[in-house]
Design a protein around this nucleic acid. Structure first.
Length: 141
DNA sequence: GCCAACGTTGGC
DNA sequence: GCCAACGTTGGC
């Protein structure tokens, strides 16, 4: 099982918006970046991803979501190059983990989030996943 | 709101 | 195939 991280601007589509979708979840559409798309194509149903709020005054990982549908054509474009997965909210983190905390933790120095801040869908290693859960005060997965 | 970093586009 | 110009992202 691989782990992932998906970014969204909090004032465009927030964690609360995903929670409001309930078990039906939401298509993660609108991605127009090949690397991010390739990551979505690699996702398996049941895998988990951190939900990250970008661009707010305190960018942070705020929740955990689950992939509920594999990659399929992006409904927001006619262009067949673009695909998206569907995700649903699983659980909020007991405490958000901010980008500044992530940058300050040596366990997370190699995170894609730290080194390629523009990639909107990115892989997370098992060790990074565990470290962030730890920082959030969440039980290990 | 600003600006640096990055990805994409398009002329040659 | 190269590279300059442009648009977008996202931290601050």
């Amino acid at each position: 099982m691989a782990f992932w991280l998906m970014k969204s601007e909090a004032d465009v589509f927030s964690w609360d918006d995903l929670v409001a979708r309930g078990p039906a979840g939401e298509a993660w559409d609108g991605v127009r970046n090949y690397q991010a798309r390739n990551n979505m194509k690699a996702m398996q149903v049941g895998e988990r991803a951190f939900f990250y709020h970008s661009r707010g005054k305190a960018p942070a990982v705020v929740g955990i979501c689950e992939v509920i549908a594999p990659a399929h054509p992006d409904p927001t474009t006619e262009d067949p190059r673009w695909e998206c997965v569907d995700v649903r909210a699983l659980a909020p983190l007991p405490r958000p983990v901010t980008l500044s905390e992530i940058k300050a933790d040596p366990r997370l120095a190699q995170m894609v989030l730290v080194n390629n801040s523009r990639l909107s869908v990115q892989p997370v290693t098992d060790a990074e996943w565990a470290a962030i859960l730890d920082m959030a005060g969440a039980p290990a997965a």
